[in-house]
Design a protein around this nucleic acid. Structure first.
Length: 155
DNA sequence: GCCAACGTTGGC
DNA sequence: GCCAACGTTGGC
C-alpha cells in the first residue's frame, strides 16, 4: 500500500463536499497535469491512503483529513468530453482519452486540521514534496515515514 | 491582489 | 527542437 497527498481548493471541492457524496465517494475529476495524471493512472492502487489537502484555503492551507483510493483502476475523466464543463478538453477524444481519474472515498476528517505552517515547522517533514519551494503538483507521493509523522502530529 | 515558479502552447 | 509568450497554481 502506498501513500499520497491530493490537493483541492475547498471553494471547488472540500472534504465536507466529499462527506456529503453517496458512499462518501467521489471521482477526483479535473486534474489536467500530466505528472499528476500519470500518478493516478500508473501508480495508484485501490486501498492506497490519501491526505486530503485544502489549497488556497482561508485562513491557512491545511491537511483536512484522510481518504482512500476506492476504484480498482484509473479510468477516463468524463469531464474532458463535456463541452459545458470547465474541464472540457477539445483535444481529447473518447477513443483516445487524455485524462484519467480515480475514485476517492472519505475515511475521516480531522477534528482539527494540520496547517501548512505546522508541517513546515516540523524538521522531520522538510523533504516532503508539499513543502518544496515552487512545488505545485496536485497529486503527490508521501513517504511512509512522513505519513506516520503527520499522524503523530494529529494525535 | 501580488507574484514567483512552473507548465503548456505554438511559431519558427 | 527551441524558446518566448501566455496561463495556472497557490502561498502570502
Amino acid at each position: 500500500m502506498k501513500y499520497w497527498l491530493m490537493k483541492s481548493e475547498p471553494d471547488a471541492f472540500s472534504i465536507d463536499d466529499l462527506a456529503r457524496c453517496p458512499k462518501q465517494t467521489s471521482m477526483w475529476d479535473g486534474v489536467r497535469n500530466y505528472q499528476a495524471r500519470n500518478i493516478m493512472h500508473k501508480e495508484m492502487s485501490k486501498g492506497d491512503k490519501v491526505f486530503f489537502y485544502h489549497s488556497n484555503a482561508k485562513p491557512s492551507p491545511h491537511i483536512a483529513g484522510i481518504a482512500e483510493i476506492s476504484s480498482v483502476t484509473a479510468y477516463p475523466d468524463p469531464t474532458q468530453f463535456d463541452p459545458k464543463s470547465q474541464y472540457y478538453d477539445p483535444k481529447s477524444s473518447s477513443d483516445k482519452p487524455r485524462w484519467f481519474l480515480v475514485d476517492v472515498k472519505l475515511i475521516k476528517k480531522f477534528k482539527s486540521p494540520l496547517t501548512l505552517e505546522q508541517i513546515k515547522s516540523n524538521h522531520e517533514l522538510k523533504k516532503m514534496t508539499l513543502v518544496q519551494p515552487g512545488s505545485r503538483l496536485s497529486v503527490q507521493p508521501v513517504l511512509e515515514q512522513e505519513w506516520k509523522e503527520i499522524l503523530a502530529m494529529i494525535n
